[in-house]
Amino acid sequence: MQGKRSRIDIIYDMVLTINKRGGRIKPTHLMYKANLSHNQMKQYLEELMAKGLVAEEQAKERKMLTITDKGIAFINQFNQMKEMERTFGL
């Protein structure tokens, strides 16, 4: 069984979910896919947008979330960090 996700794990799950959906997702879909409560979603989304990992855009009167280049770079670096930890048995 997986343990409790850390802050960085949740951020990774959110950014990865957007990336897997072709780089665009509805906020409600992201909330369900990333297993977050409404409050958590709001809090983390603010952080992701402040850090420039995710951007918000208006498409046909619907709010959509898109991944930025910085978000893609974050996924790459996170994967490298996890690979390093796995290799060294950390």
């Binding site: 960085i8 974050f74 670096q77 960090m81 390093m84 930890e85 060294f88 950390l90």
Partner: peptide
């Protein structure tokens, strides 16, 4: 340097700092 960059990504990760 690579491990330090990883530590900067997650500054609570003490193991990356030690590595």
């Amino acid at each position: 340097f690579f491990s330090f960059k990883n530590f900067m990504l997650d500054t609570k990760n003490k193991k990356q700092l030690l590595l």
